[in-house]
Amino acid sequence: MEILFYIAGVLAILSTVMVIAVRNAVHALLYLIVSLLSISVIFFILGAPFIAALEVIVYAGAIMVLFVFVIMMLYVDSSNSNEKNIFIKPKTWIGPSIIALILMAEMLYMLLGEGYHPMPHQIISPAAVGKLMFTKYALVVDLAGFLLTAGIVGAYHLGQKERKILHRYLTDKNENL
């Protein structure tokens, strides 16, 4: 079981690096799905089977399908964009990489400064998660529902077709012009 954790971790890191390195958006999406599946394996090993299932169903199933829809709707040929030679010139990627590496080094220094704490292997059942979520955090569940409603309304409003009349005062002015 322990070796599976390390294999899945290395696989997640490698496929996530490939997400930001490839040029084709569909390939990046497939690499991200591989990364999410390996993280799901890690959740399963850590004793969170409910979260592992949610990771596959919601992240790799629903959110990635949304991305696929949008890429399918407006796929442009990436050969005519400015991003063609982005990884050939080091000037474009070396600065942000240094910033991210400094941040990572700081967090690793804080994390690995003290000794290791082995995790107890204890499976937390979905029943415990649900009980806690609908008793102690019931208000937060309501707020998440409000957030999702606002997201639906916002996406509908942004996604609808553009009208010619933007504002009732602007129309008269445009007609006079």
């Binding site: 996530t16 997400v19 930001i20 991003e83 982005i86 474009t92 990627w93 942000p96 990489s97 991210a100």
Partner: peptide, 10 residues
């Protein structure tokens, strides 16, 4: 950090 670097690069 990989996500942050990608956000800054792409």
């Amino acid at each position: 950090c990989i996500g942050l670097a990608g956000l800054l690069i792409r």
